[in-house]
Simulated assay, not measured.
Amino acid sequence: MLVTAYLLALLALLLAWPVPVALSRARWTSRSPFAAMVLWQAIALAGGLSMIGAMLVYGLEPLGGTLVGALRRAATIVLGNESADELHFWHLFALSAAALLTVHLLFTLLLTYARIVSQRRRHRDLLSLLSSPSGALERTWVINHPAPVAYCLPGGSRSVTVLSDSLVETLAPEELAAVVRHEKAHLTQRHHLLLWAFEAWRAALPWLPTSRLARQAVNSLVEMLADDVARRSTPDDVLVRAIALVAVGGETAPDVVAGDGGGSRAGTAPAGLVPDRGDADDAGIAARLSRLLTPRPPLGRGATAVVLAAALMLLALPTALLIAPGLF
Protein backbone atom coordinates (compact mmCIF):
# COMPACT_ATOMS: atom_id res chain seq x y z
CA MET A 1 0.00 0.00 0.00
CA LEU A 2 2.99 2.29 0.34
CA VAL A 3 3.21 2.75 -3.44
CA THR A 4 -0.49 3.62 -3.47
CA ALA A 5 0.06 6.33 -0.87
CA TYR A 6 2.85 7.84 -2.97
CA LEU A 7 0.72 7.72 -6.11
CA LEU A 8 -2.15 9.44 -4.33
CA ALA A 9 0.22 12.08 -2.95
CA LEU A 10 1.60 12.71 -6.45
CA LEU A 11 -1.93 13.02 -7.85
CA ALA A 12 -2.88 15.43 -5.06
CA LEU A 13 0.19 17.54 -5.84
CA LEU A 14 -0.63 17.67 -9.56
CA LEU A 15 -4.24 18.65 -8.87
CA ALA A 16 -3.16 21.30 -6.37
CA TRP A 17 -0.93 23.28 -8.70
CA PRO A 18 -0.04 22.50 -12.36
CA VAL A 19 -3.41 21.12 -13.47
CA PRO A 20 -5.62 23.97 -12.18
CA VAL A 21 -3.10 26.57 -13.39
CA ALA A 22 -3.13 25.05 -16.88
CA LEU A 23 -6.94 24.87 -16.93
CA SER A 24 -7.28 28.47 -15.73
CA ARG A 25 -5.19 29.58 -18.73
CA ALA A 26 -6.99 27.39 -21.27
CA ARG A 27 -8.89 29.27 -23.97
CA TRP A 28 -11.38 26.54 -24.85
CA THR A 29 -13.32 26.85 -21.59
CA SER A 30 -15.41 29.77 -22.86
CA ARG A 31 -16.47 27.65 -25.83
CA SER A 32 -17.90 24.94 -23.59
CA PRO A 33 -18.51 26.32 -20.08
CA PHE A 34 -20.51 23.25 -19.05
CA ALA A 35 -17.66 20.83 -19.83
CA ALA A 36 -15.19 23.17 -18.14
CA MET A 37 -17.43 23.32 -15.06
CA VAL A 38 -17.55 19.52 -14.84
CA LEU A 39 -13.77 19.36 -15.14
CA TRP A 40 -13.26 21.92 -12.35
CA GLN A 41 -15.57 19.92 -10.09
CA ALA A 42 -13.66 16.74 -10.86
CA ILE A 43 -10.34 18.43 -10.07
CA ALA A 44 -11.62 19.68 -6.71
CA LEU A 45 -13.18 16.36 -5.69
CA ALA A 46 -10.29 14.22 -6.91
CA GLY A 47 -7.78 16.56 -5.27
CA GLY A 48 -9.50 16.38 -1.90
CA LEU A 49 -9.92 12.62 -2.13
CA SER A 50 -6.26 12.17 -3.08
CA MET A 51 -4.99 14.34 -0.21
CA ILE A 52 -7.04 12.52 2.40
CA GLY A 53 -6.51 9.13 0.78
CA ALA A 54 -2.72 9.47 0.63
CA MET A 55 -2.48 10.16 4.36
CA LEU A 56 -5.02 7.46 5.22
CA VAL A 57 -3.34 4.74 3.16
CA TYR A 58 0.13 5.66 4.44
CA GLY A 59 -1.05 5.62 8.04
CA LEU A 60 -2.78 2.24 7.69
CA GLU A 61 -0.03 0.59 5.63
CA PRO A 62 1.44 -1.45 8.55
CA LEU A 63 -1.99 -2.93 9.37
CA GLY A 64 -2.69 -4.77 6.13
CA GLY A 65 -2.18 -5.15 2.43
CA THR A 66 -5.54 -3.67 1.47
CA LEU A 67 -7.45 -0.66 2.74
CA VAL A 68 -10.43 -2.76 3.82
CA GLY A 69 -8.23 -5.20 5.71
CA ALA A 70 -6.27 -2.39 7.33
CA LEU A 71 -9.47 -0.63 8.41
CA ARG A 72 -10.76 -3.88 9.97
CA ARG A 73 -7.49 -4.31 11.84
CA ALA A 74 -7.65 -0.68 13.03
CA ALA A 75 -11.24 -1.20 14.24
CA THR A 76 -10.17 -4.30 16.13
CA ILE A 77 -7.35 -2.39 17.81
CA VAL A 78 -9.63 0.48 18.83
CA LEU A 79 -12.65 -1.57 19.93
CA GLY A 80 -10.60 -4.31 21.59
CA ASN A 81 -8.22 -1.88 23.25
CA GLU A 82 -5.33 -3.84 21.76
CA SER A 83 -1.75 -2.73 21.32
CA ALA A 84 -0.90 -0.80 18.16
CA ASP A 85 2.80 -1.51 18.09
CA GLU A 86 2.73 -1.76 14.28
CA LEU A 87 1.96 1.94 14.02
CA HIS A 88 4.89 4.30 14.45
CA PHE A 89 4.83 8.07 14.97
CA TRP A 90 4.54 9.03 11.31
CA HIS A 91 1.72 6.55 10.74
CA LEU A 92 -0.27 7.99 13.64
CA PHE A 93 0.53 11.51 12.45
CA ALA A 94 -0.77 10.72 8.94
CA LEU A 95 -3.97 9.15 10.31
CA SER A 96 -4.56 12.14 12.56
CA ALA A 97 -3.97 14.56 9.69
CA ALA A 98 -6.39 12.65 7.45
CA ALA A 99 -9.08 12.71 10.14
CA LEU A 100 -8.54 16.40 10.91
CA LEU A 101 -8.62 17.38 7.23
CA THR A 102 -11.83 15.43 6.65
CA VAL A 103 -13.52 17.02 9.65
CA HIS A 104 -12.21 20.45 8.65
CA LEU A 105 -13.61 20.17 5.12
CA LEU A 106 -17.02 18.93 6.27
CA PHE A 107 -17.24 21.50 9.05
CA THR A 108 -16.29 24.34 6.70
CA LEU A 109 -18.88 23.15 4.18
CA LEU A 110 -21.62 23.22 6.82
CA LEU A 111 -20.39 26.50 8.31
CA THR A 112 -20.36 28.15 4.88
CA TYR A 113 -23.88 26.91 4.24
CA ALA A 114 -25.11 28.28 7.57
CA ARG A 115 -23.44 31.63 6.89
CA ILE A 116 -24.95 31.88 3.42
CA VAL A 117 -28.42 30.97 4.68
CA SER A 118 -28.15 33.60 7.42
CA GLN A 119 -27.03 36.25 4.94
CA ARG A 120 -29.86 35.40 2.56
CA ARG A 121 -32.40 35.56 5.37
CA ARG A 122 -31.18 39.02 6.38
CA HIS A 123 -31.05 40.07 2.74
CA ARG A 124 -34.62 38.92 2.18
CA ASP A 125 -35.79 40.84 5.25
CA LEU A 126 -34.17 43.99 3.89
CA LEU A 127 -35.77 43.44 0.51
CA SER A 128 -39.21 43.13 2.09
CA LEU A 129 -38.72 46.58 3.63
CA LEU A 130 -36.87 48.43 0.88
CA SER A 131 -38.16 47.02 -2.40
CA SER A 132 -41.45 46.47 -4.15
CA PRO A 133 -42.69 43.78 -6.53
CA SER A 134 -42.39 44.47 -10.22
CA GLY A 135 -45.85 44.49 -11.70
CA ALA A 136 -44.63 43.45 -15.15
CA LEU A 137 -42.17 40.70 -14.19
CA GLU A 138 -43.03 37.60 -12.18
CA ARG A 139 -41.07 36.96 -8.93
CA THR A 140 -39.04 40.11 -9.49
CA TRP A 141 -38.43 42.91 -6.98
CA VAL A 142 -37.27 46.46 -7.65
CA ILE A 143 -35.03 48.43 -5.29
CA ASN A 144 -34.16 52.11 -5.31
CA HIS A 145 -30.50 52.37 -6.29
CA PRO A 146 -28.59 54.84 -8.51
CA ALA A 147 -26.66 52.15 -10.42
CA PRO A 148 -28.01 49.61 -12.91
CA VAL A 149 -27.99 46.46 -10.76
CA ALA A 150 -29.42 42.98 -11.27
CA TYR A 151 -28.94 39.82 -9.24
CA CYS A 152 -30.85 36.79 -8.03
CA LEU A 153 -31.58 35.68 -4.48
CA PRO A 154 -31.96 31.87 -4.24
CA GLY A 155 -34.42 30.40 -1.79
CA GLY A 156 -36.29 27.49 -3.31
CA SER A 157 -39.89 28.48 -3.88
CA ARG A 158 -39.04 31.96 -2.53
CA SER A 159 -36.31 32.65 -5.09
CA VAL A 160 -36.52 36.11 -6.60
CA THR A 161 -34.75 38.31 -9.11
CA VAL A 162 -33.76 41.78 -7.89
CA LEU A 163 -33.47 44.79 -10.19
CA SER A 164 -32.66 48.41 -9.43
CA ASP A 165 -35.03 51.12 -10.65
CA SER A 166 -32.04 52.66 -12.44
CA LEU A 167 -31.61 49.45 -14.43
CA VAL A 168 -35.28 49.40 -15.41
CA GLU A 169 -35.06 53.01 -16.57
CA THR A 170 -31.70 52.65 -18.36
CA LEU A 171 -32.20 49.49 -20.40
CA ALA A 172 -34.41 49.10 -23.43
CA PRO A 173 -37.19 46.50 -23.08
CA GLU A 174 -35.29 43.82 -25.01
CA GLU A 175 -32.13 44.47 -23.00
CA LEU A 176 -34.03 44.28 -19.73
CA ALA A 177 -35.62 41.00 -20.85
CA ALA A 178 -32.16 39.59 -21.59
CA VAL A 179 -30.92 40.54 -18.11
CA VAL A 180 -33.94 38.95 -16.46
CA ARG A 181 -33.50 35.73 -18.46
CA HIS A 182 -29.84 35.68 -17.43
CA GLU A 183 -30.67 36.01 -13.73
CA LYS A 184 -33.46 33.46 -13.82
CA ALA A 185 -31.08 31.01 -15.51
CA HIS A 186 -28.90 31.17 -12.38
CA LEU A 187 -31.90 30.09 -10.32
CA THR A 188 -33.19 27.34 -12.60
CA GLN A 189 -29.72 25.81 -13.07
CA ARG A 190 -28.98 25.97 -9.31
CA HIS A 191 -25.72 27.83 -9.78
CA HIS A 192 -25.78 28.91 -6.13
CA LEU A 193 -25.11 25.31 -5.09
CA LEU A 194 -21.94 25.21 -7.18
CA LEU A 195 -20.81 28.56 -5.82
CA TRP A 196 -21.50 27.38 -2.28
CA ALA A 197 -19.33 24.28 -2.71
CA PHE A 198 -16.40 26.17 -4.21
CA GLU A 199 -16.71 28.99 -1.68
CA ALA A 200 -16.46 26.39 1.09
CA TRP A 201 -13.46 24.81 -0.66
CA ARG A 202 -11.79 28.21 -0.80
CA ALA A 203 -12.58 28.96 2.85
CA ALA A 204 -11.27 25.58 4.01
CA LEU A 205 -7.99 25.71 2.06
CA PRO A 206 -7.26 29.35 1.21
CA TRP A 207 -3.57 28.60 0.65
CA LEU A 208 -4.32 26.00 -2.03
CA PRO A 209 -4.07 27.31 -5.63
CA THR A 210 -6.85 24.95 -6.70
CA SER A 211 -9.37 26.55 -4.39
CA ARG A 212 -8.60 30.12 -5.47
CA LEU A 213 -8.43 29.43 -9.19
CA ALA A 214 -11.46 27.17 -9.09
CA ARG A 215 -13.64 29.77 -7.37
CA GLN A 216 -12.65 32.44 -9.89
CA ALA A 217 -13.20 30.12 -12.83
CA VAL A 218 -16.56 28.84 -11.57
CA ASN A 219 -17.82 32.39 -10.96
CA SER A 220 -17.00 33.23 -14.58
CA LEU A 221 -18.37 29.97 -15.99
CA VAL A 222 -21.78 30.26 -14.30
CA GLU A 223 -22.14 33.72 -15.83
CA MET A 224 -21.35 32.30 -19.26
CA LEU A 225 -23.86 29.50 -18.76
CA ALA A 226 -26.53 32.05 -17.86
CA ASP A 227 -25.54 34.14 -20.89
CA ASP A 228 -26.02 31.10 -23.12
CA VAL A 229 -29.56 30.71 -21.81
CA ALA A 230 -30.31 34.37 -22.55
CA ARG A 231 -28.80 34.03 -26.04
CA ARG A 232 -31.41 31.47 -27.02
CA SER A 233 -34.02 34.19 -27.30
CA THR A 234 -31.89 37.35 -27.42
CA PRO A 235 -29.45 38.54 -30.12
CA ASP A 236 -25.85 38.75 -28.99
CA ASP A 237 -25.62 42.48 -29.65
CA VAL A 238 -28.57 43.14 -27.32
CA LEU A 239 -26.98 41.06 -24.57
CA VAL A 240 -23.64 42.82 -25.05
CA ARG A 241 -25.27 46.23 -24.64
CA ALA A 242 -27.07 45.09 -21.50
CA ILE A 243 -23.89 43.67 -19.93
CA ALA A 244 -21.87 46.75 -20.86
CA LEU A 245 -24.45 49.18 -19.49
CA VAL A 246 -24.68 47.32 -16.19
CA ALA A 247 -20.86 47.11 -15.93
CA VAL A 248 -20.31 50.80 -16.65
CA GLY A 249 -23.10 51.81 -14.31
CA GLY A 250 -21.64 49.69 -11.51
CA GLU A 251 -18.22 51.34 -11.93
CA THR A 252 -19.52 54.92 -11.87
CA ALA A 253 -22.11 54.50 -9.10
CA PRO A 254 -21.38 56.27 -5.79
CA ASP A 255 -20.55 54.24 -2.72
CA VAL A 256 -23.48 53.13 -0.59
CA VAL A 257 -23.17 53.81 3.14
CA ALA A 258 -25.41 52.10 5.66
CA GLY A 259 -26.79 53.79 8.73
CA ASP A 260 -27.78 52.33 12.06
CA GLY A 261 -30.48 49.72 12.07
CA GLY A 262 -30.19 49.00 8.35
CA GLY A 263 -31.04 52.55 7.33
CA SER A 264 -29.31 54.35 4.49
CA ARG A 265 -28.78 57.65 2.87
CA ALA A 266 -31.78 58.97 1.08
CA GLY A 267 -32.23 57.57 -2.38
CA THR A 268 -29.92 54.57 -1.98
CA ALA A 269 -30.19 50.98 -0.85
CA PRO A 270 -28.30 50.01 2.31
CA ALA A 271 -24.86 48.48 2.13
CA GLY A 272 -25.04 44.73 1.76
CA LEU A 273 -28.27 44.87 -0.21
CA VAL A 274 -26.44 45.37 -3.50
CA PRO A 275 -23.55 42.95 -4.15
CA ASP A 276 -20.10 44.47 -4.53
CA ARG A 277 -18.06 43.92 -7.67
CA GLY A 278 -14.29 43.50 -7.58
CA ASP A 279 -11.40 43.03 -9.97
CA ALA A 280 -12.23 39.36 -10.53
CA ASP A 281 -15.74 40.35 -11.61
CA ASP A 282 -14.27 42.94 -14.01
CA ALA A 283 -12.15 40.21 -15.61
CA GLY A 284 -15.20 37.97 -15.84
CA ILE A 285 -17.22 40.71 -17.54
CA ALA A 286 -14.40 41.24 -20.05
CA ALA A 287 -14.36 37.51 -20.83
CA ARG A 288 -18.14 37.45 -21.27
CA LEU A 289 -18.11 40.43 -23.61
CA SER A 290 -15.21 38.97 -25.58
CA ARG A 291 -16.99 35.67 -26.27
CA LEU A 292 -20.12 37.55 -27.37
CA LEU A 293 -18.34 40.10 -29.56
CA THR A 294 -16.06 37.53 -31.21
CA PRO A 295 -18.04 34.29 -30.96
CA ARG A 296 -16.20 31.04 -31.52
CA PRO A 297 -17.88 27.74 -32.34
CA PRO A 298 -18.56 25.49 -29.34
CA LEU A 299 -16.42 22.45 -28.81
CA GLY A 300 -17.35 19.55 -31.02
CA ARG A 301 -18.85 16.38 -29.65
CA GLY A 302 -15.52 14.60 -29.79
CA ALA A 303 -13.64 17.27 -27.89
CA THR A 304 -16.44 17.59 -25.33
CA ALA A 305 -16.43 13.82 -24.85
CA VAL A 306 -12.66 13.91 -24.22
CA VAL A 307 -13.07 16.61 -21.55
CA LEU A 308 -15.88 14.73 -19.82
CA ALA A 309 -13.91 11.48 -20.02
CA ALA A 310 -10.91 13.24 -18.44
CA ALA A 311 -13.15 14.45 -15.61
CA LEU A 312 -14.45 10.92 -15.09
CA MET A 313 -10.92 9.50 -15.06
CA LEU A 314 -9.82 12.08 -12.49
CA LEU A 315 -12.55 10.86 -10.16
CA ALA A 316 -12.03 7.18 -10.97
CA LEU A 317 -8.26 7.13 -10.43
CA PRO A 318 -8.09 7.98 -6.70
CA THR A 319 -11.22 5.92 -6.10
CA ALA A 320 -9.62 2.87 -7.73
CA LEU A 321 -6.41 3.41 -5.81
CA LEU A 322 -8.32 3.48 -2.53
CA ILE A 323 -10.58 0.53 -3.32
CA ALA A 324 -7.78 -1.76 -4.45
CA PRO A 325 -4.54 -0.37 -3.00
CA GLY A 326 -3.06 -3.82 -2.67
CA LEU A 327 -2.69 -3.98 -6.46
CA PHE A 328 0.01 -1.30 -6.41
Rank of each mutant, 00 (worst) to 15 (best):
G272F: 02
A12Q: 04
M55D: 11
L317Q: 03
H186A: 02
A70V: 00
L87E: 04
G53I: 01
H104C: 12
R31K: 01
L23N: 01
V168L: 09
P62H: 00
N81E: 14
A16P: 09
C152E: 13
T210H: 12
A114P: 08
P173Y: 01
L87Y: 01
A214Q: 06
N144P: 07
W141Q: 14
L193C: 07
A200W: 00
L312R: 10
S118I: 07
R232Q: 12
T108V: 10
V256W: 06
M224W: 09
R31T: 02
W28R: 00
R288D: 01
A26M: 03
A114C: 10
D227Q: 05
L312K: 06
L289D: 06
V180A: 06
P270Y: 01
A9V: 07
N144D: 15
T319S: 13
T268E: 11
L315I: 04
P146R: 03
A99P: 01
W141D: 10
D260A: 14
D228I: 07
V21I: 10
I43W: 06
P270R: 01
A230T: 03
V306W: 07
R277V: 13
H191D: 03
R122C: 07
S30R: 15
A309Y: 07
L299N: 02
L322D: 06
V117A: 13
I77Y: 01
T112K: 05
S96E: 11
